[in-house]
């Protein structure tokens, strides 16, 4: 068991190291692309904790993403926060929003859960438009950021390699955190909740509480992604709260394989490149998203991750 854990951590750290080395080989454009992919992968990792491991399908993660983005963006714009303080503010506001959302939405499950999360996220989206004296609504806020000051050094966030490494650090944190979480007793119970809630309850676990914390962790990680996106690309606007940011993590997770720790990264990277490449042929590139959703539901319910895992297991050890 311990050896398995070691191997698992070693493998994930190797992936992170590979991503670190990638910045020395990739052309400039793809460095920017991978920066975005890693930020979105954090969102997908957060989503996977709730959907892949706890079995709750949400259509409201845009709300958490936006909470992080606005928490960071508004604190820079209105309060003059530096990047690190703003990142913390973003994560904190996503945490608070997740707490509140958790209290409300977990009273229902199944399809009702899906609709309630969708409706709350929609209300949050409308709120970003309605309170436009603060959020500047549709138009959004373009931020001018101070450099990160650390240990006497100054890192300008406009520098692509600073962006890349900040995104990588956050991604590494989210990935290792999710790995640790799922190997912990807490994570095991989450999976038990997904597989059979009634039995888990019968064994004496307060399943509500487990689902609640899964939602809070998931929402907070999504908020981290939103805050990062806002700070790295110096913009926050109402589109961050739109339905698209709820469907994309669902798609990334489904494509990468639900309940696979590296699934979100794989799903995000593949989808991002598919969209990016198709956008140079047509303005209707979002059709790729639709086609992918259909193909996955019809033929690949386990996603790429599930498929790879099955393939690996079939091989003799």
């Amino acid at each position: 068991m311990r050896q398995a854990a070691f191997r698992s951590y070693a493998f994930h750290i190797a992936v992170i190291a590979a991503l670190f080395l990638l910045q020395y080989v990739l052309p400039a454009y793809h460095i920017g692309t991978f920066t975005r992919i890693m930020v979105y992968a954090v969102l997908a990792i957060g989503y996977n904790i709730l959907f892949g491991y706890t079995g709750l399908m949400s259509l409201g993660h845009a709300m958490f993403f936006a909470a992080g983005a606005y928490g960071a963006g508004l604190s820079v714009y209105w309060l003059g926060f530096g990047p690190i303080a703003a990142l913390l503010a973003g994560v904190a506001s996503a945490f608070v929003v997740s707490l509140l959302a958790g209290i409300v939405v977990l009273r229902v499950s199944g399809v009702a859960f899906l609709i309630v999360t969708l409706m709350l996220a929609q209300a949050a989206f409308l709120a970003t438009l309605y309170f436009n004296t603060i959020t500047l609504g549709d138009q959004g806020i373009v931020l001018s950021l101070r450099p990160i000051e650390m240990a006497g050094l100054s890192f300008a966030l406009s520098d692509p390699s600073v962006k890349y490494n900040v995104a990588l650090a956050a991604f590494a944190f989210a990935l290792l955190f999710s790995l640790w979480l799922l190997r912990s007793p807490f994570g095991r119970i989450l999976i038990a909740v997904r597989e059979n809630e009634a039995r888990t309850k019968l064994l004496g676990y307060n399943t509500f509480l487990y689902r609640f914390w899964a939602l809070v962790i998931s929402g907070t990680l999504s908020g981290l992604s939103g805050a990062l996106y806002c700070l790295l690309f110096a913009y926050v606007g109402a589109s961050f709260a739109s339905l698209q940011y709820s469907t994309l993590p669902l798609l990334y997770t489904l494509l990468g394989g639900t309940g696979v720790t590296l699934g979100p990264l794989a799903g995000t990277a593949i989808m991002y490149y598919l969209i990016d490449i198709s956008s140079s042929f047509t303005s209707s590139y979002m059709i790729i998203v639709g086609a992918a959703l259909l193909v996955i539901t019809l033929w690949f319910p386990e996603g790429i991750g599930g498929w790879v895992r099955r393939f690996l297991r079939r091989k003799p050890a």
């Binding site: 400039a28 454009y29 920017g32 138009q139 373009v142 690309f233 913009y235 606007g237 589109s239 303005s283």
Partner: peptide
């Protein structure tokens, strides 16, 4: 796409790709 977020990506695409 008349979208501020996409605009940033497009600028990057112009400059680096």
């Amino acid at each position: 796409a008349t979208d501020a977020k996409r605009a940033g990506e497009v600028m990057e695409k112009f400059a680096t790709q």
